[in-house]
Design a protein around this nucleic acid. Sequence first.
RNA 1: CGGGAUGUAGCUCAGUUCGGUUAGAGUACGCGUCUGGGGGGCGUGGGGUCGGAGGUUCAAAUCCUCUCAUCCCGACCA
Length: 491
Amino acid sequence: MAKVLTSRSENYSQWYNDLVLKADLAENSAVRGSMVIKPYGYAIWENIQKVLDRMFKDTGHENAYFPLFIPKSFFSKEASHVDGFAKECAVVTHYRLMNDPNGNGIIVDPDAKLEEELIVRPTSETIIWSTYKNWIQSYRDLPIKINQWANVVRWEMRTRLFLRTAEFLWQEGHTAHETKQEAIDETVTMINVYAEFAEKYMAMPVLKGVKTENERFAGALDTYTIEALMQDGKALQSGTSHFLGQNFAKAFDVKFTSKEGKEEYVWATSWGVSTRLMGALIMAHSDDNGLVLPPKLAPIQVVIVPIYRKEEEFKQVSEVAKGIVSKLRDMNIEVKFDDNDKKKPGWKFAEYELKGVPVRLAIGPRDVQNGTVELARRDTLEKKVIPVEGVEKYIQGLLDEIQENIYRKAFDFRTEKTTKVDSYDEFKKVLKEKGGFILAHWDGTNETEQRIKEETKATIRCIPLDGEPEEGKCMVTGKPSKQRVVFAVAY
RNA sequence: CGGGAUGUAGCUCAGUUCGGUUAGAGUACGCGUCUGGGGGGCGUGGGGUCGGAGGUUCAAAUCCUCUCAUCCCGACCA
């Protein structure tokens, strides 16, 4: 087969870029740092949305939509929040263009300057809490549990398709609660939703944990995260859920009267995942032949490629194929019969492999004769010839098996790439030679964390939620520690 | 914003050092044909303001000046 991708061992990030382009997921646009998501890539995102949206609704949330533009003054109301985002904001200063009087095309009309500049949202806490102020007076108005599907803009210096783009698509949940405990419970519920989604649908094992103060969301009291491990041994933060305390309620003066008649500030959470999940999905399973998609999120789960020479043969093959198509559709399996005569079978094989379609059937005159089909599975690249009779049942089971298999593979990889270390020297050695997650003791201070980051580029990905307590000494300072934390070099 | 590099066909690039026919290749695209069980073969055709502006010269993709854009490496980040 012709090589179209750079191999992972040769250059991992080149491989990733090649793959995104060649699998027709996305491409760079005319706008620096912003991508065009192509139909095949968008179809995967739609599947992600569909599943998550269901999960959000099942946990009591509703969708709504808030403005893209946020008045500049809103940002300054929560101090740490503005610190976190100020350096990467797109700002709208004018509202009109005009013809250049000197004839050099079109220019910004200097008379159309806005009284107050508008910020293109990098996240929506401020606009939403300024709105919640009007919605909340009494404990009877709580909780409010809203999600929005939207685009946001963060003016990043360096961008990469899906992993970091100036504009990206995401969902952001914003909830308001009576009590601290209720808000914390919500934060935990949502990180669990994300973890379940990652593992069950993306077939990607994730570590659940809490961020250190240093890595926390700007304006949060606690940030919960799911961290996935990519094939190059780097970590990818895949979703976050923030306990915001009363910070935004205080900033926007959102108070309610409690049952006891007391005036109190509202407790808040926010949580989100973005098109970055696409990057995670791509990197978690794919190989040097292309994308490997988990069946539960694949836009096409089964593709049928006809092989024929004469019109008559095509007719016979089509008949068999259409029979299989209708049976698979009845079972709610997404199937495509690729009867495009303009592409050759060999071309199609390579193409669908590149696009990560989990199961491929090839049907030719030989199969029509013998009552068979050739079945190829993407995850193992195995091919076999099986009877056409009952093929739909077989495929149904196989899709589950593939989903299971790629999860297992990713899980085993992560296990193999997770190392416990007890000294800083060992830490550096493992980091350099093996990468992956490193479990080590840390004294809990910002200084030590910063020092490790500066010296090794590794950061604390999280303090794991399900980590068992273990007395130990910080690998750097020797001060006491009660639990190991997870280090890795991150995207 | 610091350091490095690159702009030539839809895409990937050669040609620039040392100026000189009609600016090339691979791939993609069109047509014809043989084909078809892993990105096919042969034939043939179309496609270029050589990033832009100015300059030097009999002559500029090539030399000079300015300019625009993009990419890579750092600081920053979902």
